[in-house]
């Protein structure tokens, strides 16, 4: 599916996750966040960086991983990305939705 955001056309799946990471930019990220009711702060960017790092290293994302990340604790994670932090943060970060149950 095509979607126009921040005056740019991007490819997304039916759940709104970007399918081509090469299209991801910080401007797109901010607009995706806004659609989720999230206003990006410095802490949000730190989490996005962490998520990209894990994704590039082919490491699965999980809540347990967040706990050990040293970047953010679980409580903050839930308050920064309310209503499903892992699925929202990955959507904003332009990577696929994690398949993990934990």
């Amino acid at each position: 599916m095509k979607k126009v955001i921040a005056q740019t056309e991007i490819n997304v799946n039916e759940e709104g996750y970007m399918t081509e990471f090469s299209q991801w930019t910080k401007e797109i990220c901010e607009c995706l966040a806004e659609e989720q009711g999230i206003c990006m702060t410095e802490k949000h960017w730190e989490v996005i960086d962490y998520i990209h790092e894990k994704h590039n290293g082919n490491e699965a994302l999980s809540i347990r991983g967040i706990k050990k990340s040293g970047v953010i604790n679980i409580k903050e994670f839930y308050s920064l990305f309310p209503g499903g932090p892992l699925k929202k943060s990955t959507l904003i970060a332009g990577i696929p939705k994690p398949k993990s149950c934990i």
Binding site: R64, G65, K67, N73, Y78
Partner: peptide
């Protein structure tokens, strides 16, 4: 192997998750 936390840590995660 599946990165499932032990019981004590799982309870901490649950509590922190609200």
């Amino acid at each position: 192997k599946l990165d499932m936390p032990p019981v004590g840590e799982f309870l901490e995660i649950l509590s922190d998750s609200g």
